[in-house]
């Protein structure tokens, strides 16, 4: 059987809100390492990878590796019933066809059980090679969200270019064009407000803004976001989940015909 108890239950609620519009059904993999998920969107353009390490849970028991197929919309409906301060426990039996979500209020005066049917999902697991990226940009997550939203009112695609001068986000559409340049800025009070550009080589790649905007639904998970880029590799947009792991989005680039 498995049983995970997560004191900061809101993390799980935020993860679901971040991925449920991109991925419909997914297998959650449970092992002694932690609770993870890898899934592609229906167009096979983007890939989501989640890891919540076992050490981040108050209690984590997983007797044997278990794959739980879930409809993310239904899971989100259930997790929406948990309060933001609730402790969430996930329970399942080996070979069973249901998962139980238990929500406890912080004062222990309200305890709810929600049972959800599991599904058989045949999904392809992709091997993601470890890569050295030509450029990595770390910036405030809210700033990145604002840029993606602003640019998508003008164009459908964004060109992200990293040079010594900084990172440039450009778009073009019927009404005109836009360029937003963010320079490295480490002279801020809090490290999460910094913009840090690690450039080994300049890089310029084109991506669909529709996907970028979808990824920014993960903004409540983390103060900062990192963008890892190399020519001819998918972009990695990573939100770290404090003390537990990460939520990563991989996005295939667009190429000129």
């Amino acid at each position: 059987m498995l049983e995970f108890r997560l004191v900061q239950g809101s993390l799980l609620k935020k993860v679901m809100e971040a991925i449920k519009d991109l991925v419909t059904d997914a297998n959650f993999e449970c092992s002694s390492t932690g609770f993870s998920l890898q899934a592609m969107d229906s167009s096979h353009v983007a890939l989501v990878a989640l890891l919540l390490r076992s050490e981040g849970f108050e209690h984590y028991r997983c007797d044997r590796n278990l794959s739980m197929g879930m409809n993310l919309n239904n899971m989100s409906k259930m997790l929406k019933c948990a309060g933001n301060d609730d402790i969430i426990t996930i329970k399942a039996d080996d070979g069973g066809d249901i998962v139980t979500f238990m929500f406890e209020s912080p004062s222990q005066d309200k305890i709810s059980d929600f049972e959800m049917k599991l599904m058989d999902i045949s999904s392809e697991q992709l091997g993601i090679p470890e890569s050295e990226y030509q450029s990595i940009v770390r910036m405030p997550a809210a700033e990145f969200q604002r840029i993606c939203k602003d640019l998508s009112s003008i164009g459908d695609t964004v060109i992200i270019s990293v040079t010594k001068e900084g990172v440039k986000f450009s778009t073009r559409g019927d009404i005109g064009s836009a360029n937003i340049v963010c320079r490295q800025n480490t002279s801020v009070d809090k490290p999460e407000e910094a913009t840090v550009i690690e450039m080994k080589e300049p890089v310029s790649l084109t991506f669909a803004l529709r996907y970028m905007n979808s990824f920014t639904k993960a903004t409540p998970l983390s103060n900062s976001v990192s963008l890892s880029m190399s020519s001819d590799l998918p972009l990695v947009v990573e939100y770290k989940i404090a003390d537990m792991g990460y939520l990563r989005f991989y996005l295939a680039p667009k190429i000129e015909d």
């Binding site: 353009v45 992709l126 998918p234 991989y250 015909d257």
Partner: peptide, 14 residues
């Protein structure tokens, strides 16, 4: 115009 590439072109099925 641009062509959208697929993630499966970069990462292989395991």
């Amino acid at each position: 115009g641009d062509t959208q590439r697929s993630i499966t072109e970069f990462f292989r099925v395991t």
